[in-house]
Each structure stands twice: as C-alpha cells, then as structure tokens.
C-alpha cells in the first residue's frame, strides 16, 4: 500500500505527464491545421516578406558572432590533442566535421530560439491577450494563414540560410584561430577540411537546421496562441516556449543523427 507522500509524488508525475502530452498534442494539432493551409497555399505574401527580413536579416549579427566563436572554441578544444600528436593536418577535418554536422546547427538554432522564437511567442501572446488575434478573425482573416504560416515558413527558411552563413563564419573563425594559437597554416586547415568533409556532412547539418527551425517555429507559435492569464501569462509563455524549443532541438538532434548517419 502506498504512503500519502508516494501518492502525491505519483499524482505530480502523472499531472506533469498529462501537461507535456497536452502541449505535444497542441503542437501536433497546430501542425495539421497549418499543413491544411499549404494545399493550396494560403500564405499572406507581405507578411512573409516582413518576417523573412525581421527574422533573418536582423539575426545576422548575433549568428555571425556566435559562429565565429564556435569555430574558435572548436580549435581551442582540439588544440591540446593537435599539439600532443602533431596532427596539424587534421585540424580542418576535426573542427569542420564537428561544426557543420553538429555544433554549428545546434548552437545557431539555440541562439535563433532565444532571439527569434522567444520574440515570436511574446508577439503572438501579446496579440492573443489583447484580442488582436480575435480581431483578425472578426475581420474575416484567418490568423493561421495571415500570422502563423508566414512566421513558420520564415523561421525554417531563415534558420537554414543562417546555418550556411554561420558554418562559413565558424570555419573562418576556426582557420584563423588555428593559425594564431597553434600555428596551423590557413591553407593547411582548408586542405584538411576539403579532403575529409563530404557533401553529405554539410547536408546533414542543413537538414537538421531546417528541422530545428520547424520545431522552434511550431513551439513558439503554439505557446503564443494558447497563452492565458494576461501580461504574467505572456512571460510564462515565453519561458515555456524557450524551454520546449531547446528540449525539442536536442531530442530531434539525437534521433536525426541516427537517421542521417
């Protein structure tokens, strides 16, 4: 027979499991409703362009800085082994392989989630609690076609493009950090990189980035649209969205790594 403490614990675990299931179910329903609006495509063109600019172009500086340091960190971490074994020729392969397949897409996605995903949730949640989303509906405008679909498409496309941009900058950062700290010639770095890296390695990272973009977009939009509780609710929604996006990115990375081997 279970004690009251055990019953409380199991009730809490059960309630948490139901809460997670409800959110996952909510995201799945949103995905299905958005998919219906793609056949035939019902997307607001001006909103799409506005979001592509806002989410993509304005994220370039933060992604650029992040990527440069990601490349540099990869070299600093590899430096000890490179020096010990005198394997300077492998620096390009080591730093490049990890960057384009794994570290680049993940870290850029997390930065993107913090900047764009959180902002998306905050905007949508504010629009929801101030009845702006309802106002769109009463003006006979479908909020999913007008508001959400352009944001989802923009996030997927822009995270994909930003990852390409970030990968290039990360490799540049790695090459020059290798030269500055380890004395590895930049040409040696690029030779090692181009000899060992396959197109599929690059494609793997980019496929993951599109997947991460979709997860961040769906999660941030779901929490924005389902917010309750006024202004404090907006804060809670942003917090929950960032946590859910990051968790989703890591879980999907684990499974996609297996699938894309």
């Amino acid at each position: 027979m279970s004690t009251p403490d055990e019953e409380t614990l199991s009730a809490r675990v059960g309630a948490s499991a139901f809460a997670v299931a409800a959110q996952v179910g909510g995201v799945a329903i949103l995905t299905a409703r958005l998919a219906r609006r793609l056949f035939p495509p019902r997307v607001d063109g001006p909103e799409l362009l506005r979001n592509l600019y806002k989410m993509g172009v304005r994220s370039l500086p933060i992604v650029g800085v992040t990527a440069l340091f990601v490349g540099a960190i990869m070299v600093v971490q590899a430096g000890v082994l490179i020096r010990r074994f005198g394997a300077e020729g492998l620096l390009g392969w080591g730093a490049g392989f990890a960057t384009v397949r794994e570290v680049g897409p993940i870290l850029i996605a997390l930065m993107f989630s913090g900047r764009v995903g959180a902002n998306n949730t905050a905007e949508l949640a504010t629009m929801t609690v101030t009845e702006q989303v309802d106002a769109l509906s009463t003006l006979a405008i479908d909020p999913l076609s007008y508001l959400i679909l352009p944001r989802v498409i923009s996030m997927v496309v822009m995270l994909f493009i930003l990852t390409i941009f970030g990968d290039v900058l990360a490799l540049v950062g790695a090459a020059y950090t290798g030269q500055a700290l380890l004395g590895v010639n930049v040409a040696t770095f690029w030779n090692g990189l181009l000899e060992a890296i396959r197109v599929w390695d690059l494609a793997t990272g980019l496929i993951k980035s599109a997947l991460f973009g979709l997860i961040i977009a769906l999660s941030s939009s779901h929490y924005g649209l389902t917010v309750t509780g006024g202004a404090p609710g907006v804060g809670r929604a942003v917090n929950a969205s960032v946590v859910a996006s990051a968790t989703g990115v890591f879980i999907s990375d684990y499974f996609s790594t297996y699938v894309l081997q």
Partner: peptide, 9 residues
C-alpha cells in the same frame, strides 16, 4: 469593437 480595443500594434 473589442473591450481591449485590439488595435494592431
């Protein structure tokens, strides 16, 4: 007209 006005900000 909504109670909170619902102007697009």
């Amino acid at each position: 007209l909504f109670q909170n006005n619902a102007l697009f900000d």
